[in-house]
Simulated assay, not measured.
Amino acid sequence: MREEDAAKVQGRPVPKGRVDALLEAVPARDRESQPEAFARAERQRRRWATQVVVIDELARQACEIRELLNSAPPSAFRGAGNCATSPHAAAPDEQPTPQAVADLGSIVAVALAHSPAARTLLEQLEQEQLIPEEAVYDYYDRNRDRFLTPAALTRGADPFHETSDLLPYEQVREAIIAELRRAAGRRAFFGWLDQARAGVVYAHGYEHPGDPSHPDHEHRH
């Protein structure tokens, strides 16, 4: 591995400069802490940022394989891996905040907030999910409290006894499909990521923050 590289992703070098660019985009907190504590936090922040950049690079390569990637090379992290041919790729002013995807865990959430390639891959995986009609109706039947009519909500109706208090299945079916497809797409994204990470080699000091081989590891997502 070259000295200027933070990692190798499927044999492709990831320069340290891409990690530095993300660190500049996501400023450090607690700068007023003790020097030793701050130094430790910065080491972990660098490893954390490396994971985000690695996800971006893995997603770029996945987009290339799926022929979703445009021809422009990455010049900075935010623009790296822009799968611009996807009709669902977010424009720069439409990028989700980490809070909007916080349930995915901090590393993946920030990757999706900063990486167009990761967002496009996730959206593509969502579109590929086939949701059986039985699963859609089962969700409707098991979550009746979510489909009460406004009038039923007002009077505090019991959704599991009076079916007339429910919005018609046909009216909410598409929304349920979208929700189930979104959840299935996220599971597919995590499955893809777990497999794809197996081909990553890290430079010293850029390992996963939870890697037990370094002394100040911590495993948070």
Rank of each mutant, 00 (worst) to 15 (best):
W192R: 03
A117E: 00
H114M: 14
G17D: 13
D30T: 01
I177F: 11
V52M: 14
S71P: 07
E218V: 04
E123A: 10
R78Q: 14
D30E: 15
P35I: 02
Q99D: 15
H208N: 12
R155M: 13
Q99H: 10
R18Q: 11
T50V: 07
L22M: 11
A113K: 09
V54E: 09
M1Q: 10
G156L: 12
Q44T: 11
H214P: 09
R40N: 14
P13N: 03
P150S: 11
R220Q: 13
R2P: 06
A184P: 01
E4K: 04
P92E: 13
L153P: 05
P168L: 14
E134K: 00
G156K: 05
G185L: 01
A178K: 02
P132G: 03
H88S: 13
Q195F: 11
D138M: 05
G11K: 00
V54C: 01
T163A: 04
R220K: 04
L180Y: 03
P35G: 13
F190K: 04
R173L: 12
G199R: 06
Y206P: 03
L122P: 02
Q99W: 06
I65L: 05
P96K: 06
E179T: 03
P132M: 02
Q124Y: 07
C83D: 08
Y137K: 01
V26Q: 12
E57L: 05
T97D: 15
E162G: 03
E128I: 00
G199F: 09
P96W: 06
P73H: 06
I55C: 13
G185P: 02
G11I: 00
A183V: 00
S33L: 11
A59D: 02
G11Q: 08
Y169T: 01
G11E: 13
A25F: 14
E4Q: 07
R29C: 12
R119T: 00
H161T: 10
A178V: 05
P92K: 05
A28P: 03
A84N: 08
L167W: 09
S213H: 11
P74F: 06
Q61T: 08
P116F: 10
H214C: 04
R142F: 02
V19C: 02
A89V: 13
D165L: 08
P98K: 08
L23Y: 06
I107Q: 03
S164W: 13
E162H: 05
G199N: 07
V172P: 04
N143I: 00
L104D: 15
N82M: 11
